[in-house]
Amino acid sequence: MAASGARAERIANPTAVFTGLDKISGEISTFEAPVGKTVKFGALSVTPRVCYSRSASEDPQTTSFVEIDEETLSKKVQRLFNGWMFAASPGLNGVEHPVYDVWLKDCKGGKSSDPLPPPVVTAQPDAKPGKGKKGKGPAPDAAAPDGTSPEPGDAGADFFDQPMDPNAPQD
């Protein structure tokens, strides 16, 4: 039997946030790029394909799959970078160009993909379960499909009428 740890849900975000450095002017800029759209930073075209983060209750981990192209002086486009960027480690997969540096700073705009907790349903003591039509349901002492009658306390027709024992062991 293999042990499995808890796995944090990733959140898909619609916008990636980058930081860029223009080495000629020394100017540092922060810019946003919608996922699937291309934005220009100097001679570079930056296109995030996905941008993932985690919920606020988890350790931060922001990643983005990014394509970065450069338009040369001869108007040719060449791919400079195609891969994952990690906001926690900007030096790991940031783009280092002779004139520009670009790295992932954050993702934003995503909604948590954590599922909502199931609703709490309480049984009414006088209500009996029905099958489709109002007032038509199994009789409280109806036989099970195998022909046996439910015993008090069994998971039979009168299960919900039994008081709960708070000291009973839980499975």
Rank of each mutant, 00 (worst) to 15 (best):
F81Q: 05
F81G: 05
W84R: 15
W84P: 10
F86P: 08
A87Q: 08
A87S: 07
P90V: 06
G91Q: 01
L92D: 12
L92A: 12
L92V: 11
E96C: 08
E96H: 12
H97S: 15
H97E: 11
H97L: 07
P98S: 06
V99Y: 13
D101H: 15
D101N: 15
V102K: 09
V102F: 10
V102R: 02
V102T: 04
V102Y: 05
V102P: 06
W103S: 13
L104A: 14
D106N: 12
D106S: 03
C107Q: 08
C107T: 06
G110F: 06
S113H: 07
P115M: 10
P115N: 01
P117T: 08
V120Y: 00
V120P: 03
V120M: 04
T122A: 11
T122L: 10
Q124K: 07
A127W: 03
K128W: 10
K128F: 02
K128T: 00
K128P: 00
P129R: 06
G130R: 13
K131C: 14
K133N: 04
K136M: 11
G137R: 02
G137M: 04
A139M: 05
P140K: 01
D141K: 14
A143T: 13
A144R: 15
A144E: 04
A144I: 09
P145Y: 01
P145F: 03
D146A: 07
D146Y: 09
D146R: 05
E151D: 14
P152V: 10
G153C: 12
G153K: 10
D154C: 05
